[in-house]
Design a protein around this nucleic acid. Sequence first.
DNA 1: ATAAATTTGTGCGTATGTATC
DNA 2: GGATACATACGCACAAATTTA
Lengths: 362, 362
Amino acid sequence: MGQDKPKYQQLKEYLIELIDSNELTKGNRIPSENELAGRFNISRHTVRRGISELVNEGVLTTTQGKGTFVNQGFRNNRQNLIIGVITTYIGDYIFPSIIRGIDQVLSENGYSIALGCTNNQFEKERQCLENFLNQDIKGLIVETTKSALPNPNFELYEEFKKRNIPVLFMHGSYKGCSASSIYVDDVEAGYLATKHLIELGHKKIAGIFKIDDIQGHARFEGFCKAHKEFGIALNDNRVLWFDTNDLKYKFSMQSGEIIIEFFEDCTSLVCYNEQIGLKLIDIIRGKGGIIIPNRLSLVSFDDSDLAVASEVKMTTVAHPKEKLGIEAANLMLKMITENQEVFKVKMTPELVIRNSTGPVTG
Amino acid sequence: MGQDKPKYQQLKEYLIELIDSNELTKGNRIPSENELAGRFNISRHTVRRGISELVNEGVLTTTQGKGTFVNQGFRNNRQNLIIGVITTYIGDYIFPSIIRGIDQVLSENGYSIALGCTNNQFEKERQCLENFLNQDIKGLIVETTKSALPNPNFELYEEFKKRNIPVLFMHGSYKGCSASSIYVDDVEAGYLATKHLIELGHKKIAGIFKIDDIQGHARFEGFCKAHKEFGIALNDNRVLWFDTNDLKYKFSMQSGEIIIEFFEDCTSLVCYNEQIGLKLIDIIRGKGGIIIPNRLSLVSFDDSDLAVASEVKMTTVAHPKEKLGIEAANLMLKMITENQEVFKVKMTPELVIRNSTGPVTG
DNA sequence: ATAAATTTGTGCGTATGTATC
DNA sequence: GGATACATACGCACAAATTTA
């Protein structure tokens, strides 16, 4: 008789053993409390304690007057392996690819995804986090919301840490937070895009970047770095910043005039992503007169479907997408097993040259 | 003193009351077991039972030697509202929009989504279902996997029914299953697309449809229906069938010649979806000579981003997408509250006319 | 640094109530 | 009604962890 383990624990293990070996299967009645008490020479109270824990774990169900029964066998693997995933947008652009990558790896390993979507709003992010705190998730992968701004949901992330639930940030992490993160080297991306234009002879390069997003900042940093490295002066008037709210209005056909004026004296354009890129192409096509790449070279980022959707096949700096998702999921599995190590993984983007860029003319 | 409720239950309610009224908040120690026993004149054993249930519900945490403490307030709403969502593909095309629609409604109502993805394989579907059976989900929304074939996971769906977990099928339900379903009228969609061309004067209409997909069959059915209704003969040679595996090869630039030959003697084309439509536009643009809509009118389906991505803005029959997701989520909420009624909801698609179609010429 | 007090954890015994067969 | 099985409830004893004097 092991004196180390509590008796109710031993009883639990005995019952689990019976169920796992199929001596008791779904629907079977287990011996009565009194019988178990007699058989193991323990008190009925102790039997009750063991049983009540198994009921709580979903293994058994008790019915007064009838007995205690084994639940449906689906609970045989009594695991509940869920990873929370929070993204800014769910259905747009490259996010689906990332989620697909994550799902691919996790489902292979018996995990499933619980999905949350912030629409880039702190309030919704908070809601998602609270939701996940109420669930028994084994890990959390977060694509940061408004990553360039200070985050008001800091305490909630701390709570995950306290509970030993690993958190992995994607596309940048919050300041002062020592959590793991996986991100694309967006400075390098911005650098590669700009360098490509410079090497084609461009000197007047416009840039459009997103202001409330750390990726926007990073890509702009790379934009600057390339200018500096090649000794080209950077003109502030050639950089246009926009935020999430501008998306619908600033880049519509109606305001196309303003946009076109903006890069009028430039020969090329570094464009924050392909959603914007495609809208610009539409505007330019609509106005006529400007030909890509002859009059204007365009580099964008991400290499989504949109890059090759129109007649202008965009030169772009490819985001790893699925690969990032796969990497992130693998990291998460590692974090779960290797107990709270902090990882920082940087993925390097690659330039994909298509026909939206060409040598400077005139 | 209410004699109806058990004493441990009364104790639980007393403690919950203290927490909800913020007299005890996160981190606070509650009175010791002995003190509570004395105060309420009940035995310590009874106190322990009440406390142990609250521990199990995540409200309290006990530490031997220290005391019993109130957990972080996130559990104040001790609900665990998760809806399982199973789709065939996660990241492609219109699925993200559907998921976004579902998420929009559910998150507003305090639910969150647990996501599963079958890749159109029965085995993965089974895995997802077993996963969800192990979780405490409140409902299940399933996009059917290989809906034309008999489903081997029937018993698992039955199990949900047994547990009173409502199941809602999307895009068709399994045979012999009396569950609720929500679907788009794809016959009508095919009919609308074809009728639009006929009304523009087209009589030689080619069709491209997906063969391993019930939507493909339905859209083809509508294609036929319109031909019959307007007394136009249907030529088998003008219908091209493809399956999932063909996607990569059949519609590439390399095999473009074959595709173009296929609709050479037609003035218009009904194209299964916009992924294919966009590839065709690329092929046509690459070959030159054929102008849309002058030489060839093109109608597609779904109204995804891709419809307006290129210089050819596609006329298309819009899939409700988000709206379908929203509808589905609302239905699910209704099913949860109204206890297992069976709903059948049909959504009607709408024609969106853009500039890929025009009157027949020559 | 040690002992005492406090608090939770394990375990036994008993009694009575209530649901099911 | 009677037998059986689970539900509620009280009491006691000792062990183990933590705090405090």
